[in-house]
Nucleic acid binder design. Structure first.
Lengths: 202, 202
DNA sequence: GGATTGACATACGGAGCGTATGTCATAGGT
DNA sequence: ACCTATGACATACGCTCCGTATGTCAATCC
């Protein structure tokens, strides 16, 4: 049977998104060509500009997709670790490990801010950031963390985590740096604890 | 008298650098045109490509210049605050305040990583990062900080500081966010302290 | 003082983005 | 069932801009 108009449209959109995601991750925003996407998706520029407006719009859609996936992973990782201090640590560790993915690095961490501006201003509002913020708010409310400004704390924590990931990924042997980065992150985060337990074992 | 060949060359280089720095800060890397620079400097494409190789080379030179200035400022700010824990805090605060400069934000924080890759891989090796690293090494050696991996700690601290700055700068009223960011940074950093004194007044 | 070097100008090719225009299938009205 | 209209998508074009290849002229060196 013939597919409905809506179906084919969404399918084409998804194909363009997939192709763009691969090309953006592989070549970066600047060096990825619109013609590459369309060729890979078996479509033409018309479809692309019709669905996404321009190159930035397409890129924003890709970023939004990845950001959502990351937030979901962080959330489940945090939830698996409980609901207290360990949840925050686990979320941070999840960010660091996710950011080791070259796709995440290139699209979300490197090109994202340059093309779309500060993550807190993204259309997706950065689901990652929002997730961390919720966790921090919960822990401050429960008295686990000092009464710090929650937005600031969330922002610094995720910033530290993502920078840790970039540092790890830039190494010749990332696996050697990963535990160092995790430990440093744990120490930093422990500065937010209401009652010190940083020297205890994680 | 006629200027020597070397003099005019360095002068032209400096003029191109100035023009590029302004345009990169104003329009960003992608939207700043080589022809704009040369027009502003009263030269042509020939001079530019002869001196800097390509657009990335020119951008790297601008980044290097700003990075050096930032490191110098952080160093003096830290030194003015003593040689211990307060020096580290002061350096961090200096980063945060410097990163409020739109020029720094756009060139160093946003476009820099996208165009040149991870800061630790920059030609300048990121003088900022190196400065923080030295301070952390000193403090770990003196027993002020826990025996953390110095590179990791330096990287996370500067990452947190710079993210704090981006967060502050993205606000409608940055001056309201600045103290919150500084306090959150102080708390995070205090997690590295060998003996807890975070709850004491800064 | 002539040759050579090298800093810089000029002209060109090629790539890529965005838009304007065209086409055709599908959905809806009668 | 046919006709119309909407809109998803294709095609063609212009424009900008980067990088390079070639040319030129002044300064330095022998």
């Amino acid at each position: 049977m013939a597919k409905s108009r809506k179906e084919t449209m969404e399918e084409n959109r998804a194909r363009l998104l997939r192709a763009a995601r691969i090309a953006f991750a592989d070549k970066g925003f600047a060096d990825a060509s619109m013609d590459d996407f369309t060729a890979a998706a078996g479509l033409t520029r018309g479809a692309l500009y019709h669905s996404f407006g321009d190159k930035r719009g397409l890129f924003a859609a890709v970023v939004n997709q990845i950001d959502g996936e990351m937030a979901a992973r962080a959330k489940t990782s945090g939830a698996r670790a409980g609901s207290g201090w360990d949840a925050l640590l686990s979320e941070g560790a999840a960010y660091i490990e996710m950011a080791l993915d070259p796709e995440v690095q290139r699209i979300v961490l490197r090109d994202g801010p340059a093309v779309l501006g500060d993550p807190s201003m993204w259309p997706s509002q950065s689901a990652c950031l929002a997730e961390t913020l919720r966790t921090v708010e919960r822990l401050v409310g429960a008295g686990v963390l000092k009464p710090v400004d929650t937005e600031a704390a969330a922002r610094l924590l995720s910033g530290a985590a993502l920078n840790a990931a970039l540092w790890v990924a830039a190494a010749d042997s990332p696996e050697a740096r990963l535990p160092k980065a995790l430990e440093a992150f744990r120490l930093l985060a422990s500065g937010l604890l209401a009652e010190p337990r940083a020297s205890g074992r994680g």
